[in-house]
Design a protein around this nucleic acid. Structure first.
Ligand SMILES: [Zn+2]
Ligand SMILES: [Zn+2]
Ligand SMILES: [Zn+2]
Ligand SMILES: [Zn+2]
Ligand SMILES: [Zn+2]
Ligand SMILES: [Zn+2]
Length: 1181
DNA sequence: GAGTTTGAAACT
DNA sequence: CAGTTTCAAACTC
């Protein structure tokens, strides 16, 4: 409770200052006195405390479950971003906590157990999800999931992804009982978490916003999407009603809680938390029962969102839209609206809120609510999925379960910081405790209450709250979450539990990156690790996440940090200084890891005592200890954080091996692939035997650097953002915790040069949309290598080829010669295909008598249309051309899409399949969803297929399927750039920006960086959209030659500034992202790009900062761009200018982007995506 | 395990 | 930006 630590950490004051806090205060009668207790509060909150919230009368006005939904979605998506930006401690905390919990599980799992749990959960989730999502086919879901996950991301996606995971996991757990682990973890963590929670709320208005955002999510959740609103909703209402009772029970707990609370402060905290919870709950409720009020309020606040809502994707879009309207700020603050609403809701609750509500809120109703709702959801899900297995009272009871008063209380104590950090660590510990029993425990508390999964540990009250939040989020996220979950689950399930994990990781990781990360995505997540993770760079990320959590919660003050977490998904960038790094790194472990530590240091102390540093050290030690993959990795595992976690899990043994490399995400992907490939079902192992990783023993590969000192990208560990571990056989290694400063500085430099340097190498298209569930496709196909390969002799059939290694097909971005990538050739199809296609198209057209059509352009147009049809979203997009961006010339040539098509299509097919040949077999794909994938699994098969029909057909299909995603991705991509842009401000501007191509973001980024990023981004984007893009705009000639695209496209990406914030594709962006904070942003990367500027190691900050805030706004304006360009001209121009190629296309693309952006779904998509695709196959061989 | 090949990263 | 060098992994033997 209480832990004093917390106090320190928690900057209550700040919180108080924050509007959010104020709101809370207002709402709740209790005035927060202090945060410290918060922790307890949290617990209480989760359960009982938040009366205030309840008290506040919910405004019926707001209602709007729909809105909420939309919001929810958006919030979900944004979630990460928000967190980043705003800091929402609460959110973060929640998320982080949840995340943590999850991770912990996973981390534990790192071992199989954890995995198993996860998988179980996931499975459970899946089922539920599936049930829920009737609509969306699994595939669809997958795709969605992938998207989300991938993003991360970016790392990012990561965050969100993680969060989702967390949530899901939680849910699952609850449902399944697995929760135990969480609970367990929670317990330890709880305190911290609770504190966090409390802190958060108080701390930030922004946070609050975030919170709101969170809330929103919940709403979305309420949508039930995932859980199926129907049941859920009703349940919710019931819950609300009934739950409240449960809450009451909670209240009872409150009594207990009072204990926990001990002091008014605690109350305050509680209130805040409650408020938070409320928000969350409220949203949830919104739909469901009480929800109406909430919803109404929310709606009022967020009408836009609600309106925007639309489908799942729409959610994303909404978000983006929302963002736009509100501007990034909103986005950043995005939640703000939501927050506001939430607040309102809270107030309402207080004021008007039903007594019940109040009770709930106060008592922890929030928690309960949240919990309950969650429970409900879970229950539902369980029911559905489980069928009854769940048992537990599930339904009705569930709410409480969540809260699990007792548990909560227990958990409360734990300081948030602790939680976060510990969470990771503890989680592990907790993991150990599977807590299964825990699940029941919670239940015990309340009759109704189901299991508090949370109860287990962390969750405890806070945890619970968090969970609820998550759940809500999930629900809100709905599909997204679900999807992700599914994906994960499926993947996992398919393969093995572990694999599942891996998948998760991937997705998560992918997330992050992409975002990212995304990781940050992902990255972001790994809270668990943190402690553990510290050792690993990755862990850091996770840590970061954790830290963020902690920080956030507690204190962190640094929202940034927090942001980072969020970031992961969206951005990483949040954190200011360190954070930024972390952010950036979101993708990279380091960042997170490193940053985290920093963060921790900065902030946290949370952990009570051990500051992050300590943690890191410990971790480091642990790593060392664990030496080899296992050991080190373990740490990683722990650290793994998002991706890492996954990775770990997957690899766990594997450790890092590759994972380390590229991005965790990528790694994760790889891991997957590997896992898949190899038999490892167990994961880990890594396929390649040889691989160092395995060598090491654990499977983790490690580096063997001789001259780089592990401070260059040559070093896989470094590149992966992780510290070298004992298993590494490097010489003169500086990539160790003890050289953190050096590492970070180096990273910054590198990032300054290439913001995407640490971004996951593989971009998942994510597809978009999950919304549609249909499209399930997901496929891996969407996955691409961010930069593409440049193979000359390997024909992309060996691991020399990064694409192949990652288990993804070559894409337009690839410049390989004689590509025979089994996963997907890029071009082969492309060029020839393109031409052929074009010709064919033309011919057809002519034949058809479409004069217009007959024209090549038309033809292209036609094609595009087709694609669009297929892709759905695509249509607008088309600009695809730009996408490529990257340096390659994507050019228009591709425009036709060949590449795209090829890439997308073919790849898609291949991609999915591809995943890795090795992988493919693996299954991962399943994820992909599409049966395709699975079908393809055989690499050979795939190849054959690919070759056979390469592209065309498949493409279309994919496109259709993919397209959406892609588009979104593209959007995302665009966003990514934004990240920096994020800073940029306005959405509106965004649009312009987009058009311009330059995303404001760039400013910071030096053009160069940008350019590179862009290229990367472009890749991403392209991935995202592959096919669609190209065509439309271009229509033009598909000259293959052009392929390479001008990077210009990349710019386009930038466009979406707003998104950026959230999505950001880039991790870095993420950092920036936080617009709100601007602060962070600055530092972020911007530096990177900007070449010169950025360079400084630290610089980032300053630049970022300036940028950040400005960036967003500025960003908007092309000018920046120009400015940037000037600096970077080369790049920038390339991107932009390349006009020649892209110019038209670009423009169009830009436009598309804009649209897309609006649509943007979730950044997540980006990151995580990784999806399983990855697979990578190692070819095994 | 040594040596070769390969392509990315880094450098110019 | 292209060209070259450096680097470490992937691969071969
Ligand atoms: Zn190394
Ligand atoms: Zn190493
Ligand atoms: Zn090393
Ligand atoms: Zn290749
Ligand atoms: Zn390639
Ligand atoms: Zn290739």
């Amino acid at each position: 409770m209480e832990s004093p630590d917390r106090k320190d950490n928690i900057p209550a004051p700040v919180d108080q200052g924050s509007p959010f806090f104020k709101y809370l205060c207002n709402l709740s009668p209790i005035k927060s006195t202090r945060p410290r207790h918060v922790v307890q509060t949290y617990a209480e909150l989760s359960m009982p405390p938040p009366p205030a919230v309840f008290t506040s009368p919910p405004n019926p006005n707001k209602c709007g479950g729909r809105v909420r939904r939309g919001l929810g979605v958006s919030s979900f998506v944004s979630h990460s971003s928000w967190s980043v930006d705003k800091e929402n401690l609460p959110n973060h905390s929640y998320v982080s906590r949840s995340y943590t919990a999850v991770q912990s599980e996973s981390s534990h799992a790192s071992s199989h157990d954890a995995l198993a749990y996860v998988s179980h959960q996931s499975t459970g989730i899946k089922q539920e999800v599936v049930d829920k999502n009737e609509d969306a086919p699994s595939k669809y879901e997958y795709s969605d999931v992938s998207d989300y996950l991938t993003e991360p991301v970016e790392s990012g996606l990561y965050n969100t992804s993680k969060a989702y995971f967390m949530v899901k996991t939680s849910t699952v757990c609850e449902e399944f009982e697995f929760p135990g682990e969480d609970h367990v973890h929670v317990a330890s963590q709880d305190e911290p978490s609770s504190s966090q929670l409390t802190n958060p709320p108080s701390a930030n208005e922004e946070n609050s916003h975030d919170v709101s955002g969170i809330t929103v999510l919940p709403q979305a959740g309420s949508d039930d999407n995932l859980f199926q609103s129907g049941d859920v909703c009703s349940k919710e209402t019931e819950e609300v009603i009934g739950c409240r009772p449960s809450c009451e029970s909670n209240d009872e707990r409150n009594g207990d809680g009072s204990e926990t609370r001990s002091s008014d402060d605690s109350l305050q905290l509680d209130q805040e938390t409650a408020a938070m919870a409320f928000l969350l709950v409220g949203e949830v409720d919104g739909e469901g029962g009480s929800g109406s009020d909430w919803s109404a309020a929310h709606q009022a606040a967020l009408p836009e969102f609600s309106q925007q809502q639309s489908p799942d994707f729409s959610a994303v879009e909404r978000i983006s839209d929302g963002v736009h309207p509100r501007g990034r700020e909103e986005f950043d603050g995005g939640a703000s609206n939501g927050l506001v609403e939430n607040r309102l809701a809270v107030e309402e609750l207080r004021g008007t809120g039903n007594d019940d509500n109040r009770n709930e809120l106060v008592g922890g109703p929030f928690g309960q609510r949240g919990v309950r709702r969650r429970c409900l959801d879970f229950e539902n899900a369980r029911r559905k999925s489980m069928g009854g297995g769940v048992s537990r009272k599930s339904l009705g009871q569930r709410p409480k379960s969540v809260v699990g008063p007792s548990e909560l209380t227990t958990s409360r104590n734990v300081p948030p910081s602790v939680l976060s950090e510990r969470a990771a660590a503890t989680s592990d510990a907790t993991n150990s405790c599977p807590s299964v029993g825990s699940t029941e425990e919670p239940q015990s508390n309340t009759p109704g209450q189901p299991r508090p999964i949370l109860s287990g540990t962390n969750l405890k009250s806070p945890g619970l709250l968090r969970l609820t939040s998550f759940q809500r989020d999930i629900s809100s996220t709905e599909k997204l979450v679900v999807e992700t979950t599914r994906t994960v689950i499926e993947s996992s399930t398919n393969r093995t539990a572990p694999s599942g994990i891996g998948l998760h990781l991937n997705s998560l990781t992918g997330n992050t990156g992409l975002h990212l990360n995304s990781l940050t995505g992902s990255i972001s997540f790994s809270p668990n690790n943190r402690d553990v993770s510290q050792s690993l760079g990755i862990g850091s990320a996770s840590k970061g996440a954790v830290a963020s959590l902690l920080g956030i919660s507690g204190m962190s003050g640094n929202p940034n940090e927090i942001r980072c977490e969020g970031f992961t998904t969206s951005m990483a960038g949040i954190g200011p200084g360190t954070k930024c790094f972390a952010m950036n790194s979101s993708t990279s472990l380091y960042t997170s890891g490193v940053s985290v530590p920093f963060l921790e240091r900065n902030r946290m102390p949370s952990r009570d005592t051990t500051p992050i540093m300590d943690m890191a050290r410990e971790i480091a030690k642990s790593n060392d200890i664990h030496p080899s993959t296992g050991g080190s990795r373990q740490s990683h595992d722990e650290s793994r954080s998002l991706g890492s976690d996954v990775l770990d899990k997957k690899a766990c043994p594997i450790g890092k091996k590759r994972l380390l490399h590229h991005d965790a995400l990528q790694q994760s992907n790889l891991d997957y692939a590997e896992e898949y490939d190899s038999p490892r079902s167990p994961k880990k192992k890594r396929k390649s035997p040889t691989s160092a990783g395995e060598k090491s023993g654990e499977g983790c590969k490690r580096c063997n650097c001789k001259k780089s000192k592990c401070l260059k990208l040559y070093c896989e560990c470094f590149a992966a953002g992780t510290y070298c571990v004992g298993s590494c056989t490097c010489h003169d290694c500086f990539n160790k915790p003890e050289h953190e400063d050096t590492v970070l500085a180096t990273r910054q430099q590198i990032e300054s040069r290439n913001p995407l340097a640490f971004a996951p190498k593989i971009i998942h298209a994510a597809d978009s949309s999950p919304k549609r569930g249909e499209e399930v496709i997901d496929t891996p196909a969407s996955a691409r290598h961010k930069r593409g390969c440049n193979c000359k002799k390997s024909l992309c059939l060996k691991k020399y080829c990064e694409c192949y290694q990652a288990g993804v097909g070559c894409s337009e971005g690839c410049r390989c010669e004689g590509c025979k990538n089994m996963y997907g050739r890029k071009e082969a199809n492309e060029e020839a295909d393109e031409k052929e296609i074009l010709l064919e198209a033309l011919e057809k057209e002519s034949q058809e008598d479409f004069d217009d059509l007959s024209k090549p352009e038309h033809a292209s147009a036609l094609i595009l249309e087709q694609h669009r049809h297929m892709g759905k979203d695509l249509s607008p997009i088309t600009p695809s051309v730009q996408y490529t961006g990257q340096g390659r010339a994507i050019g228009r040539t591709r425009s036709l899409g060949k590449k795209r098509s090829s890439s997308p299509l073919s790849q898609p097919c291949g991609g999915l399949l591809q995943r890795s040949p090795t992988d493919s077999s693996q299954s991962p794909l399943n994820l992909c969803g599409d049966g395709n994938f699975s079908a393809h699994q055989n690499p050979e098969f795939q190849l054959s297929k690919i070759e056979r029909s390469p592209n065309s057909t498949p493409k279309f299909t994919r496109i259709s399927q993919l397209s959406p995603r892609w588009e979104r991705l593209g959007d995302i991509c665009t966003l990514t750039p934004l990240p920096q842009a994020p800073l940029r401000p306005t959405p509106a501007s965004i649009s312009t920006l987009e058009r311009t191509g330059a995303s404001p973001c760039f400013n910071r980024q030096s053009m160069e960086a940008v350019s590179s990023y862009q290229s990367d981004l472009a890749d991403f984007t392209s991935l995202g959209k592959p096919s669609s893009f190209q065509l439309p705009p271009d229509d033009s000639p598909p000259s293959p030659s052009n392929r390479r695209m001008s990077q210009s496209t990349s710019r386009q990406t930038p466009c979406t500034p707003s998104l950026s914030s959230s999505a950001f594709t880039g991790k870095e962006e993420m950092k920036f992202g936080d617009s709100r904070s601007g602060q962070f942003a600055c530092y972020s990367q911007d530096d990177d790009d900007t070449p010169d500027f950025l360079r400084y190691s630290e610089d980032a900050h300053s630049p970022l900062i300036s940028k950040t805030s400005s960036p967003k706004q500025k960003r908007v304006s092309p000018p920046h761009f120009e400015g940037l360009r000037e600096k970077c001209r080369g790049d920038s121009r390339n991107i932009f200018d390349s006009p020649a190629r892209s110019s038209p296309g670009l423009r169009s693309s830009r436009k598309f982007i804009l649209t897309a952006i609006s649509g943007l779904p979730s950044p997540h998509s980006m990151g995580p995506t990784l999806q399983g695709h990855i697979g990578n196959s190692q070819k095994k061989g």
